[in-house]
Design a protein around this nucleic acid. Structure first.
Lengths: 194, 194, 194, 194
DNA sequence: AATGAATGAGGGTTCATTCAT
DNA sequence: AATGAATGAACCCTCATTCAT
């Protein structure tokens, strides 16, 4: 019984994440989510309180997964310079898939009818993420690879934002930046000049 | 479309811009716009074809106004270093007010039922804006103030994005960046080290 | 002053009659009527109480005009058989142009917010029309041209309905009946067999 | 489109047919249909794409049902003269109930946003109806009961129109024709004189 | 008298959510 | 637990009518 639940829930998650990542919250219909998940519309409400809750759980689900993966990548023993390209590949793939989902949340969050507990949970989650990547970039600074005129926390934020650039680029008709482009750009901007 | 009363239109613009800047397209109700503008619901449709058209016109209206103001600021005779702080003040104020509106458009644009003419107009408008600011940053590069490891166009894009950072900052519970903070940050990142 | 009024009113009549004859009451917009009449929307309300009143006045206007013309045609001294083709030409032209207007009224009438006076006026008008044409067909019966197995009044009603056949014919994809076809049909149906 | 509950659909059909038969398309409100059907407003949209679609389906539904019944009546083995009064009873009852609905369609059809498939289906349906009754009247001609100075097709059309006479009669304040009156009238008009 | 900008009641339609099965 | 038919609040938009000029 529990197993079947897990599977159904998982299918709903996948479907919802896919759709929320693809389009705006209001343009994703519950019916669509149900259909893609291969379940009835009512079933979703067995697992999630509301559409907004579903979005929120998706975010949590995604970000936690992401941060687990991200931690694995950055907590390698190799030195900073060796890891960095991997980090970019990882982030690039993640943001390409999930950026709209996260953007959606960020702009929706203020109006989300969520409990304070939930909001704090989200905040904490993001905080942890930022802390984690800050530590990583601090390592870069400490190893003398990155400039120290900006803090590791600032770098971490810009780093995240960087993967959103493609939205603008697409709009301007510029070619998209590849993971490698991002890496080179980062290098130019934040690496210490020899 | 355009009928008579310049003032009514202006009031609708103001109201719509305010609301579209404050929340998501789907969460702004026509009635709300009308109420805030102090006009009847139907009046809006005397000036704008649809809600989507209204959003689009708001964008055009805003961006054009912004670019006029921006051009005035950057096309001063003073040298780059003197102008830069003013530019930051200007951009900061503008983005603080309009960033959500522009973000909204950017994420909505692909699904907007706009004529090709309108889309091209928008694209052109943004292109012009980017070109204008690119030229400005090129001046900074040419005058030896800015690093030349990134192109002026890239700087222009990062420059724009920078004013979005506060959205993330607010979410992380970090204190907002002031215009001056932005300026200092920019200096640290893009100024040539002496 | 009075003259100018007459002219404006006349232009509104023409415009409204045209449009009401062309399409359904609800599909004719006041703005459209005003535009076609070359007047402002508000002007119509100087002459007519409401859209429904306008429709009603149009009908009255038309039917009275029609009946005046019709009377002229049938009250000729020529004998019945001579006049009949002319009558068909007249009716055919009139119904081709006005049938939708009249149909519109007939189906709308029950819900028309008209004063009892107005309704009685309309009823009287139609009654007069029927009486007039009944008299004519009675002449045909009396002159031994028409069969006497149906009353003149019944003939008069069928006669009117006949000109509506083309609506059905068009729908069935049959070729329209010309005035002459109508005449021949009438002859076959109502003429006494020699 | 078609979901499950046959009964709900049936209730919507009945309600819509009633109302569309009673008044003009534009004067029938979806809410009214829903209320009369004892369902929620939204429920209608589970079964019908739009108001226009509902009207169209009503027509199809009615006409098909009518033609099935009509066929049963006329395809009896009894001879023409025996069947005819039954036919009149049947048609009279049907048109008394449905004529306004059909009239409504016919005048609305040109502006209905229907697919070509739908329009052709409708046309075909009406054609079949006409063919069926034409065949019947042809039998009357062949059996020497009806005059042959008009074609069976023409008779079929007049026959249909005859049941609309009451609309005009009501308007003129004449007493309605009963089924028997219609029959007698038809006899007078189309029966071969002995 | 003439205008047309302004109005807002009203209607069609959507869709998150519920609940009987 | 799962379903999907049913619901109705909510929303965009239309258009007859009004009224200040």
């Amino acid at each position: 019984m529990q197993k079947k639940n897990e599977q159904t829930m998982s299918r709903i998650y996948d479907s919802a994440e896919n759709l929320f990542s693809e389009k705006d919250f209001h343009d994703v219909k519950m019916e669509e989510i149900a259909k893609k998940a291969g379940v009835g519309k009512g079933t979703i409400y067995t697992y999630f309180k509301s559409k907004e809750d579903l979005l929120f759980q998706c975010l949590t689900h995604n970000v936690e997964e992401h941060q687990k993966g991200f931690s694995e990548v950055i907590n390698s023993d190799k030195d900073f310079k060796k890891i960095l390209p991997e980090v970019f590949n990882y982030m690039y793939a993640f943001f390409k898939a999930k950026s709209p989902l996260i953007q959606g949340i960020l702009s929706l969050m203020p109006r989300l009818k969520l409990s304070d507990t939930d909001i704090n949970k989200a905040r904490q989650m993001f905080q942890n993420g930022l802390n984690e990547s800050s530590k990583f970039f601090q390592r870069g600074i400490d190893e003398g690879v990155l400039i120290n005129s900006v803090t590791s926390r600032q770098i971490a934020i810009i780093f995240q934002k960087m993967f959103d650039f493609n939205v603008l680029f697409a709009f301007y008709g510029e070619p998209e930046m590849s993971a490698e482009d991002c890496y080179n750009f980062f290098k130019k901007t934040f690496f210490r000049q020899e």
